[in-house]
Design a protein around this nucleic acid. Structure first.
Lengths: 212, 212, 212, 212
DNA sequence: AATGAATGAGTATTCATTCAT
DNA sequence: TATGAATGAATACTCATTCAT
């Protein structure tokens, strides 16, 4: 039996490839693709520049690895988001569950990490069109589909009335965080909404969309 | 870098300065800020590089002039947008007028020009935070306020029921084009929605927001 | 009337482009194409690296300019080579004239300058196939054709018996300097043949080819 | 850098060393010395880069091994070339035997392999002067001497009249393939002469040199 | 003897900006 | 005000060679 101290050993021998992705993710998110030199990535990963090129071939491929790596966490998160809906049994539990879901959703999308990734990918969309499309499909798209599925299941069990779950999910999304998201894209330094503001957004959006 | 936009001397027709702004606008929108060299701007404006620097000081100020120049047309457009609401006299005219307004609004926001500007400004928001904020205030913000004012006037005349015009305008906006706008940011080459799709978006958004 | 001190002024204001070609020619001939960095070329021309790129676009184009520039002098030289044949009037003048021509020819081809150019172009023939072919056509090819023409004119005037002037010129050439040329390509540092050796080569070649 | 060529240990079959030389020969001939990286050599030999360095010390020594390895086959070939002359008994057999010899000689020298080696060695002559000289001595030089010896033996037996066998061999060589060889150096992609052309070259060269 | 990574200098090329004419 | 060149730092990427495992 191995206790497997992987977590503990990561300080010592983090595999080069992972270290590069981590460093590049941080730097790309902080300064953008173009403004981040390969020298600095290598230095931040405590790795030689040559190793970067051995592992990724060129800077573009490294960028793709970074962006797709980020989507992996987004995908995992999406499923967790709607798990709360599964436990709903009675009509009066629906409201609180939806409020929790909406709150988490807005918090995540308007959190600094997701905003930074969106800015990064949008900024490079012209130079990486396929990557941008793939990101959109995998991250916000997947979450939207997951929420729509959750609504459809609730509707199937008669706990909620939703004609078009995809559209309702989309309406909910953009009523929730559309304005804030748009604002945030243009205000990279401004802090996101606080908890009270999110609560207020949640109540309003659910009401408008007919789920409140 | 100066963000003062249109200065007082512009009444004297200065072809050089205008030509530079026009050429730079085109190139920045097409290829982005970083990928557009000053050489090419000067060449496209049929002007010497020195003239570019005499007129604008540096590339950043030229960028600011370009972005703020674009907002001028956006501001002019905003007022025109809600003019149709002013002519409304009877309750049964409200629906068609709102539909026309929403259609124009969505068409403009989802048109290639506005999308290109948004991508450009978002891409450079980290390097030009004040400019990005200013753009957001002047272009989408101004339009939103204008629409809110229009709704408020209608409500004041009893033609429509709107509690919070600002919020209603915002909800309408993001129900209308939130999803499409988000999609477009990540798909720089994809064509925008066609007329039928916009009609459908308009009907849906107005209904959800209680104005349809 | 202008005395035109072009020659005297060349120290002061040699046009950038010419200076670059001169420096690049010298360096390419001395160290080869790949081993000569653009930095050094710019430094040797007392010119900024940017000027090199403004003038020639890239290193390959500069190389082409160098090689073709060299052929210009080769072409001019070819005509001068056979001028001596034009003055021949009597049968007994033919021998000395041909000997002079052959001597000059061998001296030129086996001189350090021509050898260096040949090595340079051959070394890069794989990377610049069209340029190498063009060089061969313009420099040794042109000289060969000029000599053949000279022989044909002599034959036309009955001063010499030559059936196939092209072939005779070619035979003469490679009997004259074929072996030495081959040797020199593989001995970049060895001195060329001295005058006596060239005289001997000339006598032998003319005899074998039937013109001695 | 060592220029000692085949060392004593080669009787023990060392697949690694041989594989490296073979791969390097192929790559150097195809792309030149500078354009061939050690990574690719190691990969093509299915060997680690470290093994390359263990076996050869550095890239220059590997290059020397490659070039001298090639000369080994050239030397073996030279003797075979003149074997046909040994069988000549009568005066009327001399002509056909010389024609066969000349044909084989020209075919070999103008074949793609020999041309590629010549280009390679000439291209690097400035950086490897001793190696280039050694190659010239061992490959074309040895063949020339062998042919001269063959002519001398024929002359000694009264089958042919040759005053200076070395010079006659040299004249024959450059009348045969001097022009084609020169052309080929500058036309790396052009195909060599076909059989008929070689026959024609042989007849002409033997006639001019007085052996036809 | 092999592997993956490190090293560190080097490559061509581009950029925004400024100077002299 | 226009032109051509200068500046000087920065870019991504490659190379031969060596070290540790």
């Amino acid at each position: 039996m191995r206790i497997d101290g992987a977590a503990g050993d990561e300080r010592r021998v983090e595999p080069a490839r992972a270290a590069i992705v981590r460093a590049a993710t941080e730097l790309f998110l902080a300064h953008g693709f173009q403004a981040t030199g390969t020298d600095r990535i290598a230095a931040a990963a405590a790795v030689s520049k040559q190793t970067v090129y051995n592992q990724f071939g060129d800077k573009r491929s490294l960028f793709a690895a970074v962006v797709l790596g980020v989507t992996a966490t987004a995908e995992a998160y999406g499923a967790e988001l709607t798990a709360t809906l599964g436990a709903v049994e009675r009509r009066e539990d629906v409201g609180p569950a939806l409020r929790r879901l909406a709150h988490r959703w807005a918090s995540a999308v308007l959190g600094p990490n997701v905003l930074a990734v969106r800015r990064l990918v949008v900024a490079e969309a012209a130079r990486f069109p396929e990557l941008a499309a793939e990101y959109h499909r995998r991250a916000p798209g997947a979450t939207l589909r997951t929420v729509a599925d959750g609504l459809a299941r609730l509707a199937g069990r008669g706990l909620v009335e939703v004609d078009d779950p995809e559209r309702t999910a989309s309406d909910l999304a953009f009523l929730l965080f559309g304005a804030e998201l748009d604002r945030a894209l243009f205000h990279p330094d401004a802090p996101g909404p606080d908890e009270r503001r999110i609560d207020e957004l949640v109540d309003h959006a659910l009401r408008v969309v007919g789920l409140g």
